[in-house]
Amino acid sequence: MDLVERLFAGDKRACARLISHVENNVNGVNEDLKKIYKETGKAYVIGITGPPGSGKSTLTDKLVKLLRKEDKKIGIIAVDPTSPFTGGAILGDRVRMGDLNTDSGVFIRSMGARGHLGGLSDATSAAVTVLDAYGCEYIFLETVGVGQSEVEVMKSADTTLMVMVPGLGDDIQAIKAGVMEIGNVFAVNKSDRDGAKRTKREIDMMLDFSKKDWRPSVTLVSAIKDENVDVLLEKIFEHRDYLLESNLYHLERKANVKNEILSLVRKEIMERVINNDEKHQLLEDLSHKVALRIENPYTASEIIINELKK
């Protein structure tokens, strides 16, 4: 049996190996993805984002446990940062998910961001597709700890959960553009800490200004004490129902795949320059000239694009 057949048969190793092929861009992986794509799109994708240490992994662990009571098959992709110096990484999200580890209905995969900015890695969309084909009904996509502008997860997830914690800043932080805009559902985790209610109030005020049709809810939770996580899950479902009842579910998925297609085009163009000796040399020569101000970056990129057209 080949990898794809084994994946459809529910073989865990095949699923893991295909995700590796996606991550490493192994020759032929696109052919495998083409074969499985038609069978996917059934899984509901929940993005989990928030600052480092806000409790994303712990909260994911608790949400997944609730869904497991209904015997749903779950996939989790957890992204952690890659060193810009060595390419190495410590992927530690599994530490918070110890009990899920041996649950055969849960597949957890850690990924290094591998230089990709935006909170995810290059391979996450395709990895979601693989988990979808593997039969996962819900897929959790946990980003790296984010700052203010890593908004990419909303382009891969159906519902984005923004996990905040008290004590990170005042209401000005809450009204800034960027990550605070992408949550469809908000959680203020560590609700037993001082200032949790105030943080909720500040986020609520920010959300009251929004003129969008969907008004995200803000739920106080304590992931570690497992308090209110069931309420939060209900809020996620409410957003899902809202998407399904309106036409938005299709529209958002269309916007998401459009984004995915564009990023594949971008990647292919980059690779045609970098993986071709002649064009790579051209790039080197042009960079040299631009650095010396003999040439400018704008003409240089036109030269490369013209070269690609040949």
Binding site: S83, G88, R94, S110, G112
Partner: peptide
């Protein structure tokens, strides 16, 4: 060890 492997360019999955 995890840190040393990371600095050697490896992806380390640390499970606790």
């Amino acid at each position: 060890i995890a840190r040393a492997l990371r600095d050697a360019g490896m992806e380390v999955i640390y499970t606790g």
